[in-house]
Design a protein around this nucleic acid. Structure first.
Lengths: 341, 341
DNA sequence: ACAAATTATGCAAACGTTTGTTTGAATTAT
DNA sequence: ATAATTCAAACAAACGTTTGCATAATTTGT
């Protein structure tokens, strides 16, 4: 690896010192415009690139924020990341992404790497397995700002950016009831994750409001994968009293269920209605298109990043401890529109 | 931000020096086991985390490889990244991901950030817009290993990991011909990107081999988005002599076409066959399921990373300039199986 | 015209590691 | 018993920046 040019090289060439070069490059006010011009020009010619390691070591900031997500190939998370990147860029920060595949071990690894590389903040949506939070306590112990989004650790007093999942689920289930469905199954995720607990609550609230009795047999908890959807719907439809609609807490699990139903000659939405959650892009492309709950993912990312910057800019760190809840929006598509047909 | 504990703190506490601590932590042979034990224990208690910035500054390596991709929410790229992460991890490296959304400006930004943060290598799949390579020349000028995958810069003498796209397209189109389709349209991407040029070549080869005349009207070049698929199929089907099959160089563009066809009452595969490229997960979930070409994406990632490590480990950097081509595999699904129905 | 204020630059320390060299003690070989 | 070797730890310099402070030159106020 060839030697890279440093500010010392530039200083020598211009017969000045590193401090002047450093300040000139960062447009410090105490450097004359003439000098700035000379420095900038030479830097360009010599192809100078600041060594962030040295700069960050000295300044104590890495200008980097770490983002931990379960999967990067979900539209939801990809959009959140885009949102984060957008505001990070305007602040001159870069973001590094780490995916956990919902495994707690990988999550620990990610956090550990971030701590070592001294990211200035950590934004995280926890994995399905995560029911213990030592690794995150670490982050706080190190005084690194920690912000949760979507799947949060509620016990902590960290900041959280979430959707109002109770409301989202409530809307989805109410919509199914409006369409005339009577027995609605719930496919959700583990109860120790806030969003699934809340979506279940929204489901329960909607039924209760209409005075419909809860049937525990219709409630399934799984890992929300496509395969889990297939498996769950197969089992649920075998009940002596099967459902006439399914509300799934994720789009992939809904898709698995929907495809199994199609393959087994159920008509959707006539025989059975299906609603998913997250408004993944494919929901619009499949047939029948899948009703789903949009979570304003890009905005969620923007808010998460903004919260981080608010935090590091405020001097009184204790006061800004406000969390944020975004209203989701039900997107009605073919898979649940029985009445209008 | 509270003070983090350093090896100096540990040294003071154990009445020794930083060099001993440093070596003990990295299990250097010249440190006694007794001392190692004391250091490790204290480090654990004090919650010591190495400061990568300092370490990397001193050692001149960042133990990080930068990956540049057009989109992270494509299964293809997500899998490549998984592959890269896998081998990086076994070597103790971390990977940082940067997405360009196919914009050359963002691509330049990514590269610039990577250069500043002194990544030890850059793995890149270039964006659709990228037809000028100064920013990549920069990387090489800085003597940072640069490895291309999938969408490569052929003019450079860098290493490249690609699929045999000519072969993949050849198989796909031959399959359509085998199924009895006669007029096959091609929806591809810009010709300055290797993969699209090659897929087109494979298409041409397959037709030529069967002695079928090329009809330029059936060949479209677009940005391979869903919307481009809708637009292109709409226009193509209006021809006085429309195609009876479509070979699309991407799954999303195929999906757009397929959905438009369905909506307009074409039967697939009876009236018209459709084949995509990349074997995105959704191809298996839609109906009719979409025939597509699998690119062994995870392997591609592994090879790319391995190539990088081979490179930095070899002392004679000039010799290992071997590139790699992976054989793709046609996955036949419903959208093109006319004969067997 | 002289002190005070401003402007532009230089000096030197610091950030937290890694690593080549030195030192001293303990072990082995002759 | 002495020289040669090995082992364990210490010393000190270096990586490339940033930044508080000192300094010199210039401008301003009176």
């Amino acid at each position: 690896m060839a030697k890279r040019v440093t500010i010392q090289d530039l200083a020598k060439e211009l017969n000045t010192t590193t401090s002047t070069i450093s300040r000139a490059l960062r447009n410090h006010h105490s450097i004359s415009t003439a000098m700035k011009k000379r420095v900038l020009e030479l830097a360009k010619i010599r192809n100078y690139q600041v060594n962030s390691m040295a700069a960050n070591l000295r300044s104590g900031k890495s200008m980097t924020i770490g983002v931990v997500v379960p999967h990067i190939n979900r539209d939801f998370f990809a959009n959140v990341i885009s949102g984060i990147e957008g505001v990070a860029k305007t602040e001159g920060y870069s973001v590094v992404i780490c995916q956990t595949n919902d495994k707690i071990d990988k999550e620990r690894d990610c956090i550990s790497t971030f701590l070592k590389t001294r990211v200035d903040g950590v934004l995280i949506s926890v994995g399905l397995e995560t029911d213990c939070f030592e690794h995150l306590e670490q982050v706080k112990k190190m005084n690194v700002p920690l912000i949760f989004f979507d799947r949060v650790q509620e016990s902590s007093n960290s900041m959280t950016i979430v959707n109002d999942d109770i409301e989202g689920a409530f809307q989805a289930v109410s919509h199914l009831l409006d369409e005339g469905y009577k027995r609605i199954a719930l496919f959700s995720g583990p109860d120790h994750i806030n969003i699934y607990r809340n979506r279940k609550q929204g489901y329960l609230n909607a039924l209760e409001k209409r005075g419909i009795e809860i049937d525990e047999k219709l409630i399934t908890s799984n890992n929300l994968s496509y395969e889990a959807g297939v498996e769950s719907v197969k089992r649920t439809m075998k009940l002596k009293n099967p459902p006439d609609a399914i509300f799934a807490a994720g789009d992939y699990v809904a898709l698995g269920a929907l495809n199994w139903l199609k393959k087994n000659n159920y008509r959707i939405p006539e025989d059975i209605g299906v609603v998913g959650y997250s408004n993944e892009k494919f929901t619009n492309y499949i047939s029948p298109s899948l009703t789903s709950v949009d979570q304003h993912s890009m905005e969620m990312g923007r808010y998460a990043a903004k919260t981080f910057f608010d935090l590091i800019k405020s001097d009184n760190k204790d006061i800004v401890l406000n969390s944020l809840s975004i209203n989701p929006k039900l997107i009605i598509r073919e898979s649940s529109k029985r009445k209008t047909i």
